[in-house]
Write a protein that binds this DNA or RNA. Structure first.
Lengths: 89, 89
DNA sequence: ACACTAATTAGGGAAACAACTAATTAGTGT
DNA sequence: ACACTAATTAGTTGTTTCCCTAATTAGTGT
């Protein structure tokens, strides 16, 4: 959905922390929720933004939804940031 | 002012474009404004957010304000993003 | 002091964000 | 079909963002 959506998704600390948790491996929504104080519905909306930015991918496993980090989009953001520096050009 | 402020500043496309313009070298507010369609006051508020995040540094030169990219904060953001990947740990 | 240019701050309005509780959807098991 | 668990969507509220125009501050030159 574009790099704008990705940077927008990265702008909230809770969402960055979700990504940090997922870097150790896939995790269900409930398992993720255990690491936060905020309500599950609020978290669910954060998940939706990460999914919208394709920073995460979801897979259903029985009644649970398992979230996976999508490293390639994270790399796209990294590349975007890097291009703001004087490395190339 | 913290990494949150930095990511928040990076979340708007205009502000990222300002940084991209500054990577080639320092530029005055007016010179920067020449590259955008939006009003100068609006741009000025964008500049203030970049300054608040310390992504840019300002220096007065006569009646002009010259904006410089602050690469070290950009690198901090880069490091923050990198830490969301599985590189280390 | 006055005019001129450069840029910011102030004020206001529409839209988006983030949080909550309540209601709904999806899947499993009896 | 019913109950139970997992998670999301709907609806509401208060806050923040972003844009504009108008007014103000800062510096230079006459």
């Amino acid at each position: 959905m574009g790099i704008n959506t990705v940077f927008e998704a990265l702008s909230h600390p809770v969402r960055r922390r979700v990504l940090a948790l997922l870097k150790t491996g896939p995790m269900s929504a409930g398992e993720l929720a255990g690491h936060f104080e905020i309500s599950r519905p609020t978290l669910s909306v954060h998940f939706a933004k990460l999914k919208d930015a394709e920073l995460v991918v979801v897979e259903r496993q029985g009644t649970s939804l398992i979230y996976h980090l999508n490293a390639s989009i994270l790399e796209a953001a990294l590349a975007g940031l890097l291009s703001l520096k004087d490395d190339d050009q």
